[in-house]
Design a protein around this nucleic acid. Structure first.
Lengths: 118, 118
DNA sequence: TCTACTGTTCTAGTTGCCTAATACAGTAAA
DNA sequence: TTTACTGTATTAGGCAACTAGAACAGTAGA
């Protein structure tokens, strides 16, 4: 699932565009130092979700509408699973929504600096 | 770690007060259907963090200042680990902070209803 | 056709974490 | 002292997910 999220991120940030060939099972396996079988399972999952497509003997490719589909899928899971847990936690820790907003602004500022460096 | 969080939650919500005896290793093991050894590891971790104390042959007890210490510990971990990931995700999914606030308000309203039922 | 890529499948072995079962030890009350 | 709780420790085993290594199959280009 960590691998799946890594791939989704590439698609959402438009690092990988629709129609692009993505790394081969073996290639990605080497670069992130896991077993090809593990990559296969991740790719199979994403193919099932219609986010990537496979041409046997050639490789895997980012599907049409992958960006929007990924966004829908991730947003759905986020709202269903992560958000309730998150709200429960900030409620439990008595964290103010204003404090949250401040920290988020700081976070976004940090990102701008990263972009400036590149 | 799920067990640890469950216990922290009991302390934060003042379900278990400082000085209270908490369920014995075996008792809790039976009630949540895990092995006593698993509970032991959780209790050992919390003892190491100074949140619970142990009296051999008698049981485990909620330590003095456990509420504040738990709050500090959880808040520290939350800000260090969960929050950056959370911000990254809402940024990636392009979720507006206003939308977040609305969903949080809805969440809080849902809690009020739960409290009314009790 | 041959070569070098791709995906796909299979078996065997490793690892981490949990379970199961048992034993030993400290404490308190009958 | 006995009983019935506590915590603590050890050993063996199960299970899920991964690794390791190999084999087979489709595709494209030299």
């Amino acid at each position: 699932m960590q691998i799946v999220e890594m791939i989704c991120e590439k698609i959402l940030t438009r690092t990988w565009l629709e129609g692009d060939k993505i790394p081969s099972v073996r290639e990605l396996a080497v670069s992130i130092e896991v077993n090809p079988n593990t990559i296969m399972r991740s790719y199979a999952y994403l193919q099932e979700k219609g986010i990537i497509q496979n041409k046997r003997g050639i490789g895997y490719f980012v599907a049409e509408h992958a960006h929007d589909d990924t966004l829908d899928l991730m947003k759905f899971n986020f709202i269903k699973n992560d958000l309730p847990l998150f709200f429960k936690t900030i409620s439990l820790l008595n964290i103010d929504f204003e404090e949250l907003k401040e920290r988020f602004n700081k976070f976004e500022k940090g990102k701008e600096k990263d972009e400036d460096k590149q």
